[in-house]
Design a binder for these strands. Structure first.
Length: 155
DNA sequence: GCCAACGTTGGC
DNA sequence: GCCAACGTTGGC
């Protein structure tokens, strides 16, 4: 059951350029059950990922990545020094899972939330542009994926 | 198991 | 920095 995904990252924390440098990154720090479930239950190695910059001057899709591992426990949940430490999680029953993400390419320019919203009609119901959506990992249909990428080549 | 309080997200 | 949305927590 392969899928397509959009994953948000704050570029101040971890940008598409940072991903390009390391090429491979464990997606630590997700602490939302819905987002975790997508990673745990539905992601498959090779699934394409729209890499979205959030909470920044120009929010939007900044590049393409892909799922690079099966789900496994997020090590930061066990680290008392980590901001993502979860004292209620145990190694025998880890609460938080993650996948690795691999860099594919940058967008020629950021496909802004504005542009995506303007193109909303053909996208149908899309969680990213629903008011108040805060989910950091969300599924994208093939049509939405294609359409967003097509915006890369338009003004 | 209800629900108010609280914390976080994220666009603006 | 504001604030709406909404998930989580914890008292009952």
């Amino acid at each position: 059951m392969a899928g397509m995904w959009l994953m948000k990252s704050e570029p101040d924390e971890f940008s598409i350029d940072a991903l390009a440098e390391v090429t491979h990154e464990p997606w630590t720090g997700v602490r939302n059950y819905q987002a975790r479930n997508f990673m745990r239950d539905a992601m498959r190695v090779g699934d394409p990922v729209l890499f979205y910059h959030s909470n920044c001057a120009q929010p939007g899709v900044a590049g393409i990545a892909e799922v690079a591992s099966a789900a496994y426990p997020d090590p930061t949940q066990f680290d008392p020094d980590s901001a993502y430490y979860d004292p209620k999680s145990t190694r025998s029953a880890p609460r938080w899972l993650l996948v690795d993400i691999r860099f594919v390419r940058r967008c020629k320019r950021v496909i802004t939330l504005d542009a995506i919203r303007s193109a909303a009609e053909p996208l149908g119901d899309f969680a990213l542009i629903r008011r108040g959506n805060r989910l950091s990992v969300l599924p994208v249909t093939a049509a939405q994926y294609q359409h967003i990428l097509s915006l890369e080549h338009t003004a």
